[in-house]
Structure formats: structure tokens, C-alpha cells
Computed example of a mutant assay.
Amino acid sequence: MNKLVLWHYDRSREGTNNLVFMFATTAPTDDKARAFPDSLRVNMGWPAHIKTMFDYRMMFGDIYERLFQFSVISLCSDFEAFSKEVFEKYGYKKGNGAFFQRIDDVIAAMENEGFDFSSIQSSIRKLQLAFQIRHIGIHNMGVVDTNFNSKTGQGVIGNPYPVNQENYLEMFDAYAIFLKHLDDNLPSLPV
């Protein structure tokens, strides 16, 4: 196994999947267990149905979905950090500007270096979707815009794009497949 690939897989698994994503999956249950005394609810002027931290947070809409968006954002950051290190260590030619934030440019540059991603195209498409979710998660609070809709063919313009446990895990699995593909195809690290 390529040590660079293994380190990045372990980092993504622990930092993104086992920390950020785990928090996204447990926060609602944990918040339901945090009950407020009635005196606090009254003093804060909250409605009578606000009994727990979960009830309080739900006054702002389904904000727990935002944690799944953060999981996707973190996964995309993992991809960027890995790609940057691969390009630096192997001396691959990179593009200009925020190159590593543009997955299509990174993949194209790797193909120019001789990589063939045809066998993992469905994983690449899931990662491309992740980067589009990252974009609207950072710039639009997860709300679908014309650009997202035209690039993905998904979502309703003006509405939040739903991110949940299932589709995040599909993206994480796609990243693991991408890493495995590179592990099988990267040459030994230069000395």
C-alpha cells in the first residue's frame, strides 16, 4: 500500500467520517436528551413546546442537515489536501488559482499524467456531486442555485439540497474507491 494514500485514507476516516459525520448522526439524539427547566423556557420567552435543546434548535428549521453538509465539505477538503500532496510529491503539473478546489480540473490533470479513471466513473460522479454540494453549502447555506442545478441536474432552485446519512456515506465510499484506485496506480514515491 502507498503510505501517502493510506495516511490520507486514515485521516479522512478519522477526521471526517468518524468525527464530523458521527457528530452529524448523534447530535439530534444527544440534543433530545438535554432538557431545559421550565423556568429557562419562560425566561427566554420560548413557546411551551420547547422542552429540549432539540426542540429549541428545530425552531430554526431542520438545522441538523447542516451537519451532513459539513461532513461533505470536510470530505471535499480531504480530497483537496490529498490531491495537492500527490501533485507536489510526484511533480505533476497543476493548474492555476484554486486548482485543487476544482475536481474536474484535478481529474483532467491526472488523466494528462496517464491515469485512467474509466473504471471508477460512478465514484467520480459522486465526488463531483460532493464538490457541488460543498459549493452551495459554503456559499448558499445549502440552497440550490441555477449553477448547481445545471451542473448536477438535481435539486429545486431556491430550495435546500437534502444531504443525509445515506448520500454522505455514498460520497465517502466513492472517495475510498478513488483512493484505492490511486493506491493501485500511483508509482512508488520518488526519493
Rank of each mutant, 00 (worst) to 15 (best):
L4I: 13
W7R: 12
W7Q: 13
H8V: 04
Y9H: 09
D10L: 13
R11G: 09
S12P: 06
E14F: 13
G15R: 11
N18T: 09
L19A: 05
L19R: 03
L19N: 11
A24T: 04
T26F: 03
P28V: 00
T29W: 14
D30R: 15
D30H: 15
F36V: 04
D38V: 14
D38G: 12
S39A: 13
L40K: 04
V42Y: 10
N43I: 11
N43A: 14
M44P: 05
W46C: 05
A48E: 15
I50Y: 07
T52I: 06
M53T: 00
F54H: 15
M58D: 08
F60G: 07
G61H: 00
D62V: 09
I63H: 11
Y64P: 09
L67M: 14
F70S: 08
S71Y: 02
D78Y: 06
D78S: 15
F79N: 06
A81W: 10
F87P: 10
E88H: 11
K89D: 10
G91R: 03
K93C: 08
K94Q: 11
G97K: 07
E113G: 02
E113W: 05
F117G: 07
F117L: 11
S118H: 12
S118V: 03
Q121L: 13
Q128H: 06
A130L: 08
F131V: 03
R134N: 00
I136C: 03
I136T: 02
G137Y: 00
I138A: 11
M141G: 14
V144L: 06
D145K: 06
N149G: 01
N149W: 01
K151F: 05
T152W: 04
Q154M: 11
P160H: 09
P160C: 04
P160D: 02
P162K: 02
P162D: 01
Y168K: 03
E170Y: 07
M171Q: 10
F172K: 03
F172A: 07
A174H: 04
A174C: 07
Y175G: 07
A176L: 12
L179P: 09
H181L: 03
L182A: 09
L182G: 00
D183F: 06
D184Y: 05
P187D: 13
S188Q: 15
P190N: 06
P190D: 02
V191D: 15
